[in-house]
Simulated scan of single mutants.
Amino acid sequence: MPTQRFFNLKEEKRRAIVRAAVHEFSRVPYSVASINQIIKEADISRGSFYTYFEDKDDLLQYLVSGFREKCREQVYAQLELNQGDLFETACAMMEQIMDAGNESRGAELYRNALTELNPVTQSRMMGIKGFLYEDEVYCQFIHGLYERIDSARYPVGSEAQLACLVEIILVLVIKAVTMFYMGAADRERIMEVTRRQMYILKNGALSGNMPEESPAVRLDRRPEKKEISYER
């Protein structure tokens, strides 16, 4: 996250840096995004940039921090709506993100970031800075979940065990949202497959009650490839 020196800048300069970063991360995939382009557009030196942020990963995390906070609030709200069902909440959140994704501000930024980053960096984007239970903010999020889930239906035992379960659920959620942004499959197929995966996770792979694959879900079908230009 930004250093105090960044927050000490005048608001106009901070906004200029943010605008330049959003423009660059929205214009091209994360691996192609250029710090040189950002500092040129923001009219700052390269040396100054590194006194504000560690690297472009640090900058990207700052840009999506508001998105993460909003997601956490919506997760808690969805848990109440779904009567403490963690798995239904995860599916509801995926649908919300997919429905709003193509229309929300910064959609191109999220698409470019999620479709290229490795799982570790994707998790950091979602606010998981440490492995499992090592990040204070993530621990607070888990504590909030633990207080809201239906413990009678999901006796996870401890917050540490819940953190392990949430980590697995997040992998499925991030994968589904990434596939949606990439256009790897349509929304209905992605949701149907992910719901079956959630069902298996919820009930156990060895329960003997695994769902049959719907004939409408063709996992071996490949989408038509599309060429995308990132030229200005």
Score class of each variant (00 low, 15 high):
residue 27 R to F: 09
residue 94 M to K: 11
residue 212 E to L: 13
residue 173 V to L: 06
residue 63 L to K: 10
residue 123 S to D: 08
residue 180 F to V: 00
residue 73 E to W: 02
residue 146 Y to L: 13
residue 212 E to D: 12
residue 94 M to P: 09
residue 22 V to W: 15
residue 78 Q to L: 13
residue 87 F to Q: 00
residue 36 N to Q: 13
residue 119 P to K: 13
residue 18 V to Q: 13
residue 205 A to R: 06
residue 215 P to N: 08
residue 93 M to F: 02
residue 166 V to P: 01
residue 180 F to E: 00
residue 134 E to I: 01
residue 53 F to K: 04
residue 161 Q to F: 03
residue 143 H to E: 14
residue 215 P to Y: 01
residue 93 M to D: 01
residue 226 K to H: 08
residue 50 Y to L: 13
residue 120 V to A: 15
residue 112 N to D: 05
residue 6 F to V: 03
residue 41 E to I: 07
residue 62 Y to V: 14
residue 219 L to G: 12
residue 13 K to L: 13
residue 167 E to F: 01
residue 133 Y to P: 01
residue 83 Q to E: 14
residue 212 E to P: 00
residue 162 L to P: 02
residue 116 E to A: 10
residue 35 I to K: 07
residue 70 K to L: 08
residue 50 Y to V: 13
residue 55 D to G: 08
residue 10 K to H: 09
residue 4 Q to H: 10
residue 70 K to E: 06
residue 51 T to R: 03
residue 143 H to Q: 14
residue 164 C to Y: 11
residue 55 D to E: 08
residue 177 V to C: 06
residue 210 M to A: 09
residue 88 E to N: 14
residue 150 D to C: 09
residue 49 F to K: 05
residue 222 R to T: 07
residue 130 G to M: 07
residue 208 G to C: 14
residue 208 G to M: 00
residue 160 A to Q: 15
residue 230 Y to W: 06
residue 133 Y to F: 12
residue 78 Q to K: 05
residue 2 P to G: 13
residue 174 I to V: 08
residue 80 E to Y: 00
residue 23 H to D: 06
residue 76 Y to W: 04
residue 46 R to L: 00
residue 66 G to N: 12
residue 186 D to S: 13
residue 135 D to F: 01
residue 211 P to Y: 05
residue 50 Y to H: 14
residue 109 L to M: 15
residue 48 S to W: 02
residue 155 P to H: 15
residue 160 A to F: 10
residue 56 K to A: 06
residue 21 A to D: 08
residue 1 M to K: 12
residue 7 F to L: 15
residue 120 V to P: 00
residue 226 K to F: 01
residue 104 S to M: 14
residue 133 Y to G: 09
residue 141 F to V: 03
residue 144 G to W: 15
residue 107 A to W: 00
residue 68 R to M: 13
residue 112 N to V: 09
residue 133 Y to H: 11
residue 71 C to T: 12
residue 137 V to N: 04
residue 40 K to Y: 00
residue 1 M to D: 07
residue 90 A to C: 11
residue 168 I to W: 00
residue 55 D to I: 09
residue 122 Q to E: 11
residue 159 E to S: 04
residue 176 A to S: 09
residue 17 I to N: 04
residue 74 Q to W: 03
residue 202 K to V: 05
residue 16 A to D: 14
residue 25 F to K: 11
residue 140 Q to D: 13
residue 48 S to K: 06
residue 129 K to N: 10
residue 79 L to V: 08
residue 57 D to P: 01
residue 2 P to M: 11
residue 191 M to F: 12
residue 66 G to H: 06
residue 57 D to T: 11
residue 153 R to F: 03
residue 230 Y to S: 00
residue 38 I to M: 04
residue 2 P to F: 12
residue 156 V to T: 15
residue 50 Y to G: 05
residue 57 D to F: 02
residue 134 E to A: 15
residue 155 P to V: 05
residue 8 N to L: 07
residue 214 S to P: 01
residue 60 L to A: 15
residue 8 N to A: 10
residue 114 L to G: 07
